[in-house]
Design a protein around this nucleic acid. Sequence first.
DNA 1: TAATTTATCGCAACAAAATTGCATTAGTAA
DNA 2: TTACTAATGCAATTTTGTTGCGATAAATTA
Lengths: 124, 124
Amino acid sequence: MKRRNTPAKSTIMTLLKSAESALSQDMIEEKVKGDMDRVTIYRVLNSFCEDGITHKILADNGKYYFALCDSCNDEVHNHDHFHFRCTKCEKVECLDEQVTIKLPDGYVMKSINSWVTGECKNCS
Amino acid sequence: MKRRNTPAKSTIMTLLKSAESALSQDMIEEKVKGDMDRVTIYRVLNSFCEDGITHKILADNGKYYFALCDSCNDEVHNHDHFHFRCTKCEKVECLDEQVTIKLPDGYVMKSINSWVTGECKNCS
DNA sequence: TAATTTATCGCAACAAAATTGCATTAGTAA
DNA sequence: TTACTAATGCAATTTTGTTGCGATAAATTA
Ligand SMILES: [Mn+2]
Ligand SMILES: [Mn+2]
Ligand SMILES: [Zn+2]
Ligand SMILES: [Zn+2]
């Protein structure tokens, strides 16, 4: 299954690159409304994730946010940092601060998903 | 809007009380299957949350989990601890460890939602 | 450049989860 | 008992995401 470059992919990729924050499914859908089909957006985003170009994170509002992978390698996505979601402007960003936790004996950690909700520095 | 005591509410409340862990929407639905309508379950759970009797937390598997509020009072719900979800037995539990984070200047925290996924001490 | 291959697209249909509207039932207080 | 209306069950609807399939077009080859 060889990938092909298409207008749909370029458009979405440009959106993700120009976004200073992670974009949710419906934010993307809103921005490209009319230009491409709903299904195409889903498929493009999924293919990006499959290819390790983006990752999706589930926020505490129930929505998936997509972001370009930066310091991730092909195999390992590293997101053990806090994510911040602003309830005013709805922007999502990765915070520098790493999540640290000491689990009780016998517990094995596979992944972490930590969200802080509030107001960002532009909105507070 | 005065609340009333009904069989549906008692049933669900009993389930929550007897559960040693938080229950997801569909776990509850499974247990009361046939006894009451799906819609009623949704409405009962929502009313519990509105009244501050329970809180719901969105897990990183996309499901909502409901738990009785323990050390919360009417106004303030305090859940700034890590939640653990076991991928084998699917149990969800609140960990003792508090989440600590120092936000960058200008950021205001409203709430925290932190999940660790892995294997619990019974399953590892 | 033209033909070939098949990834991708758009559209319709489908599916699952949750919500809403409304007529009926039943909890509560007078 | 009666009156009031919260709560319920059921159907319809909304929301979100998936699947199937014929048409389109990106990439490769001739
Ligand atoms: Mn990544
Ligand atoms: Mn609570
Ligand atoms: Zn903001
Ligand atoms: Zn377990």
